[in-house]
């Protein structure tokens, strides 16, 4: 039983690390801000969840378990709110998503 929990938590920790790393690579690879938000939310949702669930399996029935659940719930709520706030602030400040920029360039070319 102990071994099964260990193996499960290893799988979860490995999976979480993989998704976090994928998100960070996406943060560097994607071309503009609004695409990068999606890569960031990758690390915030499944990456963080899998790592914390992997830790929960190791915690056992101690006080660490509800604390980890608390961290998980809070990081999910705060992650969505922060992404939304960043996207909205960026749009308000005049930063435009890529497809609109392409549309404008096309229109300008037609006017020329």
């Amino acid at each position: 039983m102990e071994l099964m929990f260990d193996i499960l938590s290893w799988i979860f920790l490995l999976g979480g690390s993989f998704f976090c790393l994928t998100g960070a690579v996406g943060l560097l690879r994607f071309p503009e801000f609004f695409s990068r938000i999606h890569a960031a939310s990758l690390t915030d949702t499944l990456g963080a969840s899998l790592i914390l669930i992997g830790l929960m399996l190791q915690a056992g029935w101690k006080l660490a378990l509800p604390k980890l659940i608390l961290i998980l719930v809070f990081s999910l709520l705060a992650g969505t709110t922060a992404s939304h706030a960043m996207a909205k602030a960026a749009l308000k400040s005049g930063l435009r998503p890529l497809d609109q920029e392409e549309g404008r360039r096309k229109r300008e070319r037609q006017e020329d």
Partner: peptide, 14 residues
Amino acid sequence: TLYDRILAVNIFGT
């Protein structure tokens, strides 16, 4: 842009 930096700092924090 400024917002790329804020996004990166947010990731760093989480």
